[in-house]
Every structure is written in structure tokens, then in C-alpha cells.
Simulated scan of single mutants.
Amino acid sequence: MNGRPSTVLIVGATGSIGRHAVAEALSQGYAVRALVRDRARAARLLPEGVDLVIGDLTRPDTLGPAVEGADAIVFTHGSTTSERDVRDNDYAGVANVLRALGRRRAHIALMTAIGTTRPGVAYAQWKLRSERLVRASGNPYTIVRPGWFDYNQAGQRTIVMLQGDRRQTGSPKDGVIARDQIARVLIDSLHLDAADHKTFELIADYGPAQDDLTTVFHSLTPDSARSLDAAEDVIHLPLDHEPETFRHDLATISAGNDTAEG
């Protein structure tokens, strides 16, 4: 990465993870910008000092001011487990922001979910497609797949990063993590070189939180620059069988970045 970012755009800033991400970014000294639809509501929920920019993830024409001058973008938005909702909000939001960003470069921190690669789960496949767009964009990035939010016990504060997405019960047995821990990992990834081009599942184990996550990030296998998928994933989504919507977005977002392959 080319130095520490200074201005961070938080997408989903008023959500349960987004609010923690805003607080964490402020505490780490970033200038924080929040993409919001309702300024009055956002002003009630977010701390002073946050730059509130009006925009709608589903309306690409509203996103230019949000990405202008941002050198990091943190995606914390999320909807339901409905395929349509995830396609039209979670996935489309990532696609629209990346399109608005264009050829400008920003470090991307994308939150999806543990179990994203589960075969035959339609809504998860759209989360997976959003990951593929980020990898194809040519930006430095970190993709975080958290376990079940706030199911952890008080003593589970040690951050654990896994790869291969092999925990797929669809229950807290797959792993648990606190919301503030997710936010910390997302924001830490913006300035740690060891986090670049890494995709991982995020859970908590018993023990104290680490003061520095560099070693944890460093232990991970980086994604290949010549693949759309994470380093240790086993995925059966051939590009020529993908929906036209995705293939069009992929072609647009990867334009000028010829390193990605299906």
C-alpha cells in the first residue's frame, strides 16, 4: 500500500457495525466520511466530526461526492438473507461505489460473512460476487468474513483469522465475534501492509485482544492477483455461467486492470 490513508468513507455508517467502524476510525485519527440517506437521522446516531454525505447505494448518480477524495472505503452495509435484497443492496452497493470510484485508487475493506462460499445458497453467491468485483477492481483491499455477531462470551476477545471458508453449518458453531472487534479489524486493515490482498473468516477465541494484528494478518495467504477468488476457497461458480448483471459489472469495474482471471 502507498502509505496510510487519511480520509475514510464508511458505507453503512449508521448500521450496527458501521457505527463501531466510525468510532474506531475516529479513534485512530482518520478523517471520517459517512454515506447516509437521512442527514438528520445520521446526525443523531453518529459522533460530531463525521462528514455526512448524502447518497444512496442503489442510485449510482448520487455517489460521486461520497467517493471524491476518499483514499479508503469501508463497506459495512448488509441487508437480509433474501437473495433479492442482497443482490439489490449488498452486491449492487459495492458495484455502484466501485463504478463511482472509477480509476481512482482507494484501499477497500469489505465485510461479507462467514459461509459465503456455501454451495447453492443464492444470497451468499451475491456476497461472493461482490468480493470478486473488489478483487478485480485493481485496488488494494481486505475482505473480512465475520462469524456470528455478538454471540461471543466476555472472555472471547482474541482475534482469529481463518481461510478456506470451511465452517458452513449456518449457525454460531461456525464462529462468533463481537461487533466492535469486526470494526477494529476493518479499520486496522487500512494501514497494515500485511492485510493487503487478504480474504479471511473472522472469529474470536478465549483470551485477551491482541495489541497489534500485524502478525495475525501476516500469517494469511494472499489472494492471487490472477484470480477472482480467495486464496484457499473452493468455489464452483464458472464465470461463463454467471448472471449477465455480474458479468457486465465485472467488465466495467475491471476495465484497465488486466490481471484478473475467472
Rank of each mutant, 00 (worst) to 15 (best):
L228M: 08
F75I: 01
Q125H: 08
R84S: 14
G155C: 04
K173L: 00
A25N: 03
R33S: 05
D240W: 08
S82D: 10
R135L: 12
G15V: 10
L57M: 15
G78S: 11
L250W: 12
A31Y: 05
Y151H: 13
V121A: 07
R99W: 06
V11P: 11
P47Q: 08
T215A: 15
L45F: 01
A231G: 06
T245K: 01
D90E: 05
S224D: 15
G155N: 11
G3E: 01
G93D: 11
T252A: 15
D51V: 14
T7I: 07
D188H: 11
D193Y: 09
L186N: 04
R87N: 14
A42T: 00
Y123F: 15
R37T: 09
A21E: 01
D174V: 12
N96I: 09
R145P: 02
V176L: 13
I73D: 01
K198S: 08
S189Q: 04
A209M: 11
T215F: 11
D196C: 02
E244G: 07
V121P: 04
Q181W: 02
G18K: 03
R135S: 14
Y30T: 13
S227R: 10
K198T: 05
R179D: 12
D229I: 02
K127V: 02
A34E: 04
D205E: 15
G55K: 07
V97N: 09
I177H: 11
A154F: 08
G147A: 11
I177N: 11
R84V: 13
N139P: 05
V97A: 09
I187W: 12
S130A: 15
P140L: 00
Y141T: 00
I10R: 03
A255Q: 02
Y91H: 13
N89L: 05
L220D: 05
G115N: 04
H241D: 15
G55T: 03
A209R: 10
V134E: 00
Y206T: 12
A23D: 08
